[in-house]
Amino acid sequence: MSDDIVVKVDHVSMRFNLSSEKVDNMKEYFIKRIKNNMKYDEFWALSDVTFDVKKGESVALIGLNGCGKSTLLKTIAGVLKPTKGSVKIYGNIAPMIELGAGFDMDLTARENVFLNGAILGYSRKEMQKHYDGIVEFSELEEFMDVPIKNFSSGMLARLAFAIATIGTPDILIVDEVLSVGDFRFQEKCEKRIQGMMKKDTTILFVSHSIDQVKKICNRAIWIEKGRIREDGTSEEVGSHFERAYYAGELEE
């Protein structure tokens, strides 16, 4: 294996069991579960997905809603274990997979900085060094002692991004988080991502904005119904996806 590979996705498939019968209440559900009487339909969110990502690459995962992009990112981040196949990571990951993940909504923004930092593997002392930079980048100085349950989605995204991008992680995973911020802050985030890329951070990126994909990423992987349809430059794959989308050739 090449020494510069940092993510290796090897024949990954992910199956979910979807309940195929109506259950009227929780009591009935638990009784059926205990007696093993629940009937399920199998849903394969990913089917035999294989690719490598090299150090310093910026790779976008594109496709329609429900195609498996987020499931794939969660598998790479270690949140989900694949039903078949394997994922190997070489380096540390800063994941931004779900808005608010790793936060306690009842705690203040200040408290969540240290909580989220601990989840990412940083000591309190390290987070104290980064704290002022996080506040400055997120532009939330007046709100750091406010419980984040009162934050808008845009404010949450600012805080999450500012924490996830402290230092220089080997791999940064960003799933749609930039879509909730205002345009000016999105540009600010894009500049930080580009700065991290210059330091050889690997980027795995999900966005519905093909323009954003082309701007940030040098490679795109098109996922369709849980399988890789195309893997190539972001310019080429992004254009092929847009052409198919606007021609009405894609089915969700």
Rank of each mutant, 00 (worst) to 15 (best):
L18F: 11
D3F: 01
K39V: 11
F114A: 06
S20A: 15
G66F: 08
K84Y: 12
S152F: 04
E57L: 09
K32E: 13
D10Y: 09
N17F: 08
S58T: 10
A60V: 09
I216N: 03
G181A: 14
G100D: 02
K27H: 09
V23H: 09
G102C: 03
I210N: 03
W44G: 01
M105Y: 05
D41K: 15
E235I: 11
C217S: 07
K54P: 03
D104I: 01
I173A: 05
V87G: 07
V177D: 05
I62L: 10
E139A: 12
I163C: 08
R15Y: 04
H208E: 08
V146F: 05
K225R: 15
F143P: 03
S234C: 05
I228C: 02
Y90P: 00
V146N: 06
E136T: 07
E224F: 09
L80P: 06
S207Y: 02
Y246T: 14
L46A: 05
D145Q: 11
Y29L: 15
E57D: 15
D211E: 12
V135P: 13
V23T: 15
G167K: 04
L80H: 14
I34E: 04
G238H: 08
T50N: 12
M96N: 13
M155L: 13
P169K: 04
Q128N: 13
N25S: 14
A157Y: 01
M26L: 15
E224G: 03
T168L: 01
V49T: 11
I76Y: 06
N112M: 05
K55N: 11
S179C: 06
Y245S: 10
M38A: 08
E230P: 06
G66I: 07
L99P: 06
E42W: 00
D132R: 14
H11R: 12
V53Y: 07
G56R: 14
A164F: 02
V206K: 03
N25E: 10
E251P: 00
G91K: 11
D104Q: 14
Q186P: 06
E242N: 06
A247Y: 00
